[in-house]
Design a protein around this nucleic acid. Structure first.
Length: 724
RNA sequence: GGGCAAUUAGCUCAAUGGCAGAGCGUCUGCUUUACACGCAGAAGGCUGUAGGUUCAAUCCCUACAUUGCCCACCA
């Protein structure tokens, strides 16, 4: 067994060849697995739909962890003779991709607004296709044994059609509506965002107290606000109906300063007595709470801030065109000059910001499409309660439930071009839903696209519906969804809701939520912190096996996982150890070694033990240890305790098999003592079984060795039988 | 304002109702023909604090402290 004459294992020379061997074998495709040729109703299926990586940048460590866990599960189940499918894909990732692309344009001194819709779309399309190919090659280099023949993209025409059908179904079921609501507007990216895409930041601001003169000319009512500039769009002042302080002012009018408008004082229970003065200015067009109040009281609606984040022409001339911040300063100065500012005090509160660019979100009232989500959420809650979808671990189930119970309608309109265009057509007051407009003239299509999660929320069934004739029937609901906790709400929750709504069944029986990756100081990895480790560079330098093992080793995956160069080096050494130990064993056995009876398919160490006399005490010990390790690794993987399984495999192979058994048998063979043959059989048996046990974690080196193992029963380790 | 998690060796983390382990690091020997990416061995811990349950607690319970995270329309 040569590795270019080097003593140390060199994965770079081995891994690409091994991947080709697997891929050409066809066994990534479940239809080609031996088990699929058997007509037997007892055959079990196992299916994972890969969370489709965003096709806008290279894979990062998080993907490497995600892929490692999935591939380990896939290989484990495939070796247990299940009809096993891992379906890969890529996500167009609407807003995310457009943001990445806009940054690229900015670097070139361009802006998205210079381009026509179709031109921009085409440019992003080409960019994404390139990235998609890169991603596929990266997945291969990590050893992902997914069925590339079934690969999907979220913009595949057939998938888009299904997404359109879902939209129509929701519309017909009155679970989707178009309406003017307060949305989260990012002035930089010029699009609305869902509540989940808004990050709240604690800020030191001011709370201003302004006197609004009563129209009667007798006195004032004092309101407190953090956003003075919006007062130009006030259409009422509200107090709590139980607030005795203001009883006699109710239904009186106020003369709104800086404008010539009179606005009423109304009561609404949304107003809290304790906050500020207990009187609140109501700006329906720029605050969600005020919007609701206005809805209840049929208040007037004045939009004073535009999509560009500047004051509109609805405000007095002096303020028109000012940026929000400048308008704020000017209002404060002007009210102060009028003697209408009572006081200002420091105030700490949280302000919504765009999760991508950090710009303050501007709540604006816009006509958009919303999913009426409560009915969908109820079904999802029920499914999880009944255990149809189980969370691993339970702690995420609680988080999920809490969010689902408090869920609010979901804005799915995005004012960008990169995505699936909303199949809605308008003519005067009429709305038509469909791929094509009605025949007569004058229909105009909605210019918005779907929130990307609207389509990826349907991923498990749209992929299987379009991948093979029986795939949906055979593999849906899928076995397990593997993903990180940060997209629990964005994605997992929506998949469960949409899956049940569209197919009547939950999309996956289990959901395994793993953590994010941290550096060795416990800090979250991010480009801005400069502490990212590029998985591909690691694969190049130290091998995919080392990377995979180090991602699983020594840390529970349901909490955030630290990864460091040191950890990867440790596993690189382990791969080297496996290589060298195997090299030694095979040299000792010789290329023609045949394990004496039973000659093939030894399934358990126990079987071997009873099959042969002449084992030493040490032989019996290691065979017993092999049995114990097999049991532990098996149950640990079944329980998603990969870190324990990996540690057990590591410890068994290195510190039991190598340190004890091989050292012992080495001497027996050297001395040619009478128990040398028994020793050979033991090392063959333990090596053979160890390769299987390690294969889900370190597929390359184990397969490479298996290919040289004398008397190997199968053509590939990948389709060997998992030991019992 | 609600909720969740963590606190164990120098560092990063496992485990377990009764002996607390690993990787890296440190120290001492070894160029023993598979591997110096190695071998043999060693040091290193009142398992955050205070109570409680128990024959027995690092583990279960209660408080507290510290840290991290998630959710939430306090104008």
């Amino acid at each position: 067994m040569e590795n270019n004459g080097n003593k140390a294992y060199n994965p770079r020379e081995i891994e690409p060849e091994i991947y080709k061997l697997w891929e050409y074998s066809g066994y990534f495709n479940p239809d080609n697995l031996p088990v699929s040729k058997i007509k037997n109703s007892k055959i079990k299926n196992f299916c994972i739909i890969m969370p489709p990586p965003n096709a806008n940048e290279a894979l990062h460590m998080g993907h490497a962890l995600d892929f490692t866990i999935q591939d380990a599960l896939i290989r484990f189940n495939r070796m247990q003779d299940k009809k096993t499918l891992w379906l890969p894909g890529a996500d167009h990732a609407g807003f995310e991709t457009q943001v990445v692309f806009e940054k690229k344009l900015e670097k070139e001194g361009k802006s998205r607004f210079q381009f026509e819709r179709s031109t921009l779309y085409k440019m992003i399309w080409d960019y994404v296709q390139q990235n998609k190919h890169i991603m596929e090659e990266q997945a291969r280099s990590l050893g992902a044994s997914c069925d590339w023949s079934r690969e999907k993209f979220t913009l595949d025409p057939k998938i888009v059609e299904i997404v359109y059908d879902t939209f129509k179904k929701l519309y017909d079921d009155k679970l989707i509506y178009r309406g003017k609501r307060i949305i989260n507007w990012c002035p930089k990216h010029q699009t609305g965002l869902s509540d989940l895409e808004v990050k709240y930041e604690e800020r030191e601001d001011k709370l201003w107290y302004f006197k609004y003169p009563l129209s009667s000319g007798e006195g004032f009512i004092v309101v407190a606000t953090t956003r003075p500039e919006t007062m130009l769009g006030d259409t009422a002042v509200a107090v709590n109906p139980k607030d005795n302080r203001y009883k006699k002012l109710i239904d009186q009018k106020v003369k709104l300063p800086l404008t010539n408008r009179e606005i009423p004082i109304i009561t609404d229970s949304a107003v809290e007595l304790e906050f500020g003065t207990g009187a609140v200015k109501v700006t329906p067009a720029h605050d969600p709470v005020d919007f609701d109040i206005a809805d209840r009281h049929k208040l007037e609606f004045i939009e004073v801030i535009g999509k560009d984040g500047k004051m509109t022409n609805e405000v007095p001339e002096a303020y028109q065109g000012l940026k929000v911040d400048d308008a704020r300063a000017k209002v404060v100065v002007d009210l102060n000059a009028l003697g209408l500012m009572e006081k200002e005090e420091p105030y700490k509160h949280s302000v919504g910001a765009c999760y991508k660019c950090g710009r303050t979100i501007e709540p604006l009232a816009m006509e958009q499409w919303f999913v009426k989500i409560k009915p969908l959420a109820e079904k999802a809650i029920e499914a999880v309660k009944k255990g149809k979808t189980r969370f691993v671990t339970k702690k995420y189930e609680k988080t999920f439930m809490h969010w689902m119970r408090n869920i609010k309608d979901w804005n799915i309109s995005r004012q960008i071009v990169w995505g699936i265009r909303i199949p809605a057509w308008y003519k005067n007051d009429q709305i038509h839903i469909g791929k094509e407009p009605p025949k007569e003239d004058g229909w105009v299509q909605d210019t918005d696209v779907f929130d990307t999660w609207f389509s990826s929320g349907q991923w498990p069934f749209v992929t299987l519906m379009t991948s093979g004739q029986n795939d949906l029937k055979e593999f849906y609901p899928t076995s397990v969804m593997v993903t990180a906790w940060d997209i629990l709400f964005f994605w997992v929750a929506r998949m469960i809701m949409m899956g049940i709504y569209c197919t009547g069944k939950e999309p996956f029986k289990q959901v395994y939520i793993h953590g994010l990756l941290k550096d060795k100081y416990g800090k979250k990895m991010s480009k801005s912190k400069g502490n990212v480790i590029n998985p591909l560079a690691v694969v190049e330098q130290r091998g995919a096996d080392a990377l995979r093992m180090s991602l699983l080793f020594g840390s529970e995956a349901d909490s955030d996982t630290p990864i460091s160069e040191e950890k990867i080096i440790a596993q690189q050494r382990f791969a080297n150890k496996i290589w060298n130990a195997s090299k030694f064993v095979m040299n000792a056995l010789g290329p023609d070694y045949k394990p004496t009876k039973p000659a093939r398919g030894a399934q358990s160490a126990d079987g071997w033990r009873s099959a042969m006399d002449g084992y030493t005490k040490e032989d019996k010990w290691i065979l017993k240890e092999l049995e114990k390790a097999t049991k532990k690794i098996t149950t640990d993987i079944e329980k998603y305790k990969f870190h324990e399984a990996a540690q057990e495999a590591y410890h068994f192979f290195w510190h039991k098999f190598c340190d004890k058994t091989i050292e012992d048998v080495k001497i027996r063979i050297q001395k040619n003592s009478k128990d040398a043959d028994a020793g050979k059989l033991v090392v063959w048996t333990v090596l053979y079984n160890s390769l299987k046990l390690l294969h889900p974690f370190m597929p390359f080196v184990t397969e490479a060795i298996y290919q040289k193992l004398p008397s190997r029963p199968k053509e590939l380790l990948m389709i060997e039988k998992w030991p019992k």
